[in-house]
Design a protein around this nucleic acid. Structure first.
Length: 790
RNA sequence: UGGGGAGUGGUGAAAUGGUAUCACACGUGGCUCUGACCCACGGUUUCCAGGUUCGAGCCCUGGCUCCCCAGCCA
């Protein structure tokens, strides 16, 4: 990991921050946490890491790196029944492989058990937790449903002393599993179901992989996770969207047990990838039921699988940086991952030749026994790397069966009867005759001739465009097995299989094709397990880290090359195509369909008026006497305080429509459900602002700034206007100068405007408005701009 | 039905009241001893409807659609 501290946070080439980095940036700028940034990656050691975790790892470690902080590696091991040391080891290896470093910050929630226990005791002592003795089923029933509140447990009001005693005896092992639990005493009627007295501890007489039999009570995630964060002084606790509701518990707990500044939780959308599954449970089933060869099967989306497949950490990191991070649920198409992998491999995999489906070629005019060693570069012209190897050319060679066609489609550039093609790095080959196997009728061999003049000469030379194909010398070829991988599933979202089908029904029967008759150029005989190459015109391959042996080479296709040739795409392309079968995409998500508009009157406010005659009367008056639209009157009469605020404003300034707009649009925004009393100004002052706009004292642009200042407690509007100097109108000369300057600063934009891109008017207006501090009259500005450019 | 989130080209993201931008995918053309890479060009008008504003993807109001929450899992 590069050491970052020196570098200001400018994440890999991005000009803008994602929303998480924006939060961190604001916090550090504000000096929160003393400018420190501490994140954490908190897996449970009960499974292997997959590409979805890679996103989380890159976010957590990436943010720490970008802001000169540190990311803790912490195992949230609070469930002894599923966790195991082997997972800890594989997870650590995966994170390290991905290229991240936790320094000496390796932690386990299980190391905090004693501290967590003491924190639980404190909660009990403070009356914030209790021992519940309901059984599992009763607890469920008491919890209520999403629409009905829960009921309090009869054990909820046990004394502190009794709770303490019971909890101590839970720990001491006096009770069987399930006899008691510790619960937070929050609110059984909470709208957020997570807050209905969540469970904190349960009894489990199970051996824990790290603490052995020392404990028989284990903390729940909702208790252990936030408190572990707080114990480690985590600043930004970043997790996935499904924990949004849990944030309330997080805050409740940490607020009660730790001082500020304390960690805060933020959530992002987890990664979904097309044509694969990401849940641990489903991945486990694939392994256990033999659909794949193991956790590291190259078709698996696990990091172990991708590593075995030949994906590089750099490629995966490139992928995660390209997909970005946001809060919208999404599925990423496989092409994005594949392109990132190719992008990385393109610059680092040397080119070699291999023939996957060999077709014998005899070069009739080549002397028997003659061997010509051709010098072949490892790298294409546009990759600035040096290096060549020698490739032997003899009378008998093999070419790719798919590079010959007896009856080629239009645009075919490879071999055909009587046609010519270039043997890459060697010479031009002409096909004289296709020899059939009399039994099958299949082309068994090609009899060709070569052009001695073309040997080692540059292409072209009056010959025009000639395709160059890969080949291997029959006498020198190295045999190998090659495994071609395709997507594991045929459906974009196997988890959403249609009625009566499961994700397993979507398994792609052709997700792997094993070719055993492949022939590679001799230099590959020395390929070491884990070495990557590009087999020219095929794709990127890796000598399988496990199965490949010097005398029995096995290669995995990491990813095929893009293939934009359309000539035989409909034909049985087999596994040769990088993309494989392309099933119909899932139906597009339905566009919002509003149906017939029911107007913008809110049912809720209609109810409020039905119950409150004052509101009902006001509504009628606003429409009838003040001439407000029903919609406007509606929003002003959903709450008595809002209506009174509006009344006060109108008393101070008679233009009801204008005042109503300000209240409805700006005051309501600031209120966001809070009581009107919290506003730092009164209706009369808002009226004063409205009057200033109407009188032409200030522009409405400036009025927005004044309003913001009023919200910040800046005092009465007129005072703010004076203080900010907004009442000094801009002179005609100044305005003209500002317009000239804006236009002169962007001559290309001015030209584009003149050519008809009139949407640029807004841009120029914005420039001038900014330059004049919002004091210019936008209409006048636009007139000027139009005249100047029109 | 309650609460919490989210809707921008086919896909993922950017634009923090002022030029709808980038990557992938797709299409067309160019380059090429890889039908690769690379280069150029092309298509969307921001879920819908109203409103505020000189100006709205962004602010206000209403609606629609999708996701999460009723484990002693995390």
């Amino acid at each position: 990991m590069p050491n970052p501290a020196s570098k200001p946070p400018a994440p890999q080439g991005r000009e803008t921050f994602d929303f998480l980095r924006e939060i961190v940036r604001r916090d550090t700028a504000a000096g929160r946490y003393g400018g420190k940034v501490v994140t954490r990656f908190p897996p449970e050691p009960n499974g292997y890491l997959h590409i979805g975790h890679a996103k989380s790892i890159c976010i957590n470690f990436g943010i720490a790196r970008d802001f000169g902080g540190v990311c803790h590696m912490r195992f949230d091991d609070t469930n002894p029944e599923t966790e195991d040391m082997k997972y800890v080891e594989s997870i650590l290896a995966d994170v390290r492989w991905l290229g991240f470093d936790w320094q000496d910050k390796l932690f386990f929630a299980s190391d905090y058990y004693e501290r967590l226990y003491r924190l639980a005791v404190r909660l009990i002592e403070d009356g914030n937790a209790y021992v519940d003795s309901l059984d599992e089923e009763e607890i469920r029933r008491h919890r209520g449903t999403v629409t009905e509140p829960g009921r309090e447990s009869p054990y909820r009001n046990r004394s502190v002393a009794e709770n303490l005693d019971l909890f101590a005896r839970m720990r001491a092992g006096e009770f069987p599993d399930g006899a008691h639990v510790l619960r937070a005493k929050i609110d059984m009627g909470a709208k957020n179901m997570k807050m209905r007295d969540p469970l904190l501890y349960r009894i489990r007489h199970v051996t824990h992989y790290r603490t052995g039999d020392r404990w028989c009570i284990y903390p729940m995630y909702d208790f252990a996770h936030p408190l572990s964060d707080a114990i480690e002084n985590i600043t930004h606790s970043i997790c996935t969207l499904e924990f949004e509701n849990n944030r309330a518990i997080y805050d409740w707990l940490v607020d009660r047990l730790f001082p500020e500044p304390r960690p805060r939780q933020y959530e992002f959308a987890r990664l979904n990838l097309d044509y694969t599954v990401m849940s641990k449970r489903k991945l486990l089933r694939l392994v256990e039921e033999g659909d794949v060869a193991g956790w590291d099967d190259p078709r698996m989306p696990t990091l172990a699988g991708m590593r075995r497949r030949g994906y590089t950490p750099e490629g995966i990191r490139l992928f995660t940086s390209r997909i970005g991070v946001d809060k919208a649920n999404s599925r990423v198409s496989m092409e994005l991952l594949e392109d990132a992998i190719r992008d990385d491999l393109n610059a680092r995999a040397p080119r070699v030749m291999g023939v996957l489906r060999p077709l014998k070629v005899t070069i009739a005019n080549w002397p028997a026994g003659k061997v010509e060693w051709c010098e072949a570069p490892y790298w294409p012209h546009d990759i600035p790397r040096e290096g060549t190897r020698a490739v032997p050319l003899t009378r008998e060679v093999f070419i790719e069966r798919t590079d010959f066609s007896e009856d080629p489609p239009p645009g075919w550039m490879r071999l055909r009867p009587g046609g010519a093609v270039r043997l890459r790095d060697a010479c031009i080959l002409r096909c004289e005759e296709a020899v059939r196997n009399p039994a099958t009728g299949e082309v068994a061999e090609l009899r060709c001739s070569y052009d001695p003049d073309s040997m080692g000469k540059p292409a072209g030379a009056g010959r025009g465009r000639t395709a160059a194909i890969q080949w291997v010398s029959a006498g020198h070829a190295v045999p190998a097995a090659v495994r071609l991988y395709d997507r594991l599933f045929t459906a974009p979202d196997p988890e959403e299989a249609e009625e009566g089908r499961t994700f397993k029904d979507c398994l792609n029967p052709d997700s792997v094709e094993i070719l055993t008759e492949c022939l590679l150029e001799p230099v590959l005989a020395g390929a070491k397990p884990g070495e990557r190459f590009q087999f020219v015109r095929h794709g990127y391959f890796i000598a399988d880290p496990v199965d490949s042996k010097p005398d029995a080479l096995v290669f995995n296709r990491i990813i095929g090359l893009k293939d934009t040739y359309k000539g035989d795409r409909t034909a049985s392309a087999g596994g040769g195509k990088p993309r494989g079968a392309m099933p119909a995409r899932r139906t597009a998500s339905p566009k919002g369909d509003a149906g017939p508009s029911r107007g913008t009157i809110s049912d809720e406010r209609v109810r409020a008026r039905a119950e409150n005659p004052f509101l009902a009367r006001r509504y009628e008056e606003y429409v009838a006497d003040l001439g407000l639209s029903p919609e406007l009157a509606d929003v002003l009469t959903g709450d008595a305080e809002v209506a009174r605020f509006f009344d006060a404003s109108v008393r101070a300034h008679a233009n009801a429509k204008a005042v109503a707009n300000w209240v409805a649009n700006d005051v309501l925004r600031e209120l966001k459900g809070r009581p009107v009393g919290e506003l730092p100004f009164r209706g009369g002052e808002l009226a004063e602002l409205v009057r200033a706009v109407e009188a032409g004292t200030i522009t409405s642009t400036a009025a927005k700034a004044v309003f913001a200042e009023m919200m910040a407690g800046g005092g009465p509007p007129l005072a703010i206007i004076r203080r900010m100097g907004l009442d000094r109108s801009v002179s005609d000369a100044d305005l003209a100068a500002a317009v000239d300057a804006a236009v002169a600063a962007m001559p290309d934009k001015a030209a584009a405007y003149r050519e008809g891109k009139t949407s640029l008017l807004g841009m120029f207006t914005g420039q001038v408005m900014k330059a004049t501090g919002g004091k210019a009259d936008p209409k006048a500005v636009q007139d000027l701009i139009r005249r100047k450019l029109g």
